[in-house]
Amino acid sequence: MKIFVGIAAMCLMASFATPSLAHDDTAEIKSKAITGEVPLDPNSDVWNDAKYLIVGMGPQNLVAPGLAKGTVSSVKVKSVHNGKDIAFLLEWYDPTEDDTETMMNKFSDAVAMMFPVKPGTEPTYMMGDPDNPVEIIYWKAAWQKDIDKGYQDVRDAYPNYNYDTYPMLNNMIDARGNPIEVKDGEIYKPVAPEDRAINTPIGKYTDAQKGYLPGLAVNNPRSRIDRTKPVEELNAIGFGTLTTEAVEGHANGKGIRSFGYWKIVLTHPLKGEVQDASFIGNNGHFMTAIAVWDGDKGNRGGRKNFSNGGWIPLWLEP
């Protein structure tokens, strides 16, 4: 039953995604040509003159795990470009601000845009296919917080949390509850409360100590403590193939909260690295798709809302 519903829904997607809609004024993102740098600031005046498109969102339920019901109904999109870079402004209503992944049952709000790597190709709308890879620019509120306030850790999630000791830090608690440092089996010196092990940022760990943080030790992108931007660039060729790009590209982003809305800017070079989407040629006609996650509703991975009209035509005004 599940498979039949899936196939029916995919056929529906395919019919929506036909190029006949490409020049429909009501369903196209028009990227306005500007002079000067594309703005990274969601509140920049540059956005005022750009036309917007309201993109309807629906629950991803073609493949499990998914969503039974949508959690974000629409996203407002604007775009500008300057012949070198393209920028998008995405806005949606989300009454709860979810910007932590440092607690086991908390998920982050997030947004992503997907582009075919090769202009003119039409990859499968669901994460691309082996012949037609896609590039995904992924902004996450938790990463924005890492950028704005430093890598979020146990102490940030639980300000009053206490923990006796982390053995690899050689930091222990004496009988009276005061932290001490032990060297070669001898008490080396008492440790000031502010230097207690739980307060030690993992960025200060030695390589040996980082061995106790498995994700970080194997360079999992999720565990990155040296993040410089709140977006990740990824490639995919189908379900379950999402992979962080080995060479970091030049996409960037910035997100802010504004009266219950998320306002996110994503920027991307028109011509990036070889694995990146290109926005050169093809008479200025390209495609994109959008996904939004509401952390409060447990959205993560495939449990997301996506632009339910399939690929959205994107036209770069000359």
Binding site: T102, M104, N105, D153, A157, G215, N220, S223, R300, G301
Partner: peptide, 21 residues
């Protein structure tokens, strides 16, 4: 994603708050 934490009926998959995996 913590799908494993959710799915394991014995709750023996855990989420590491610091490494986020």
């Amino acid at each position: 994603y913590r799908e494993c934490v959710k799915a394991c009926p014995y709750k023996k998959a855990f989420y590491n708050n610091t490494t986020r995996v």
